[in-house]
Simulated scan of single mutants.
Amino acid sequence: MLRRATDGDVDTMRTLRNQQANLDVSINSHRITAEEHAAWWAKASVDETRRILAYERDGVVAGFVTFFDLELDATPRTGAWGFYLDNEGLAERGETLPAWIGVMKEATGYAFDELGLDELHGEVLEHNTVVRQMNRRFRFVEGEPQTRLADGREITVLPISLHKDNRRKPKGN
């Protein structure tokens, strides 16, 4: 289940984002301080071009999804997204793969059905082959690799995109 993130989620959000597995596959790979996160939340939580959602499984927060750069009044309606999971907690419970599939289904559904997007964009690090495979399973298309400098290291980033007409349809549709 996806729901709007609240002030009460902020500490959990930062804790999960700072899990090593998430840092290893993030463009910004440094540990986020409480002050840095509080400043980000103060702006992001009131930004109309963003939606920050908690992903819950059986009533437990299992990750967060962020939609940003939302162009809801444009043609086509576009936005970008990213997510991260509670890798440690999900692994302990043996729920990593079902949670991962679940968050991707729910997030793409939210993007196209709730936000009404025509196109969803994102980025993935080239070395993150597991996520790239999952993205292909959900019919995201990769663009041309881009080399960047982030947190003092050179990284290769692949833009990804999914058009609403190419998405995997929910069962029953």
Results as ranks from 00 to 15, higher is better:
Leu117Ala: 01
Ile52Gln: 09
Arg51Lys: 13
Thr129Gln: 11
Thr75Ala: 09
Asp69Phe: 08
Val131Cys: 13
Glu56Trp: 09
Gly94Glu: 10
Asp47Leu: 09
Thr49His: 12
Glu71Ser: 13
Thr129Ser: 09
Lys43His: 11
Val131Gln: 11
Ala99Arg: 04
Ala80Arg: 05
Ala42Arg: 15
Phe112Met: 08
Arg51Phe: 05
Arg132Trp: 08
Arg93Cys: 09
Leu70Tyr: 08
Thr129Glu: 14
Leu85Val: 10
Phe140Thr: 00
Gly94Leu: 10
His127Glu: 07
Gly116Ser: 07
Arg93Gln: 15
Thr75Arg: 11
Gly63Glu: 01
Thr108Met: 05
Ile52Trp: 10
Ala80Lys: 04
Ala54Pro: 10
Gly94Phe: 10
Arg93Leu: 15
Lys43Pro: 02
Glu119Tyr: 10
Leu125Gly: 03
Leu120Arg: 03
Ile52Ala: 03
Asp73Lys: 08
Val103Phe: 02
Asp47Glu: 12
Thr78His: 07
Val46Glu: 14
Pro76Asp: 06
Glu126Ile: 05
Gly143Trp: 11
Thr129Asp: 12
Leu90Thr: 01
Leu70Val: 12
His127Asn: 05
Val46Arg: 15
Val61Phe: 09
Glu123Lys: 13
Asp47Ala: 12
Phe138Thr: 03
Thr78Trp: 04
Thr49Gln: 12
Asp69Ser: 14
Gly89Val: 00
Leu90Lys: 09
Phe67Pro: 03
Thr49Pro: 03
Leu125Lys: 08
Glu95Ala: 15
Glu95Leu: 15
Gly82Thr: 13
Phe67Met: 07
Phe68Val: 03
Val103Gly: 01
Thr66Lys: 12
Asp113Trp: 06
Arg50Gln: 14
Val141His: 05
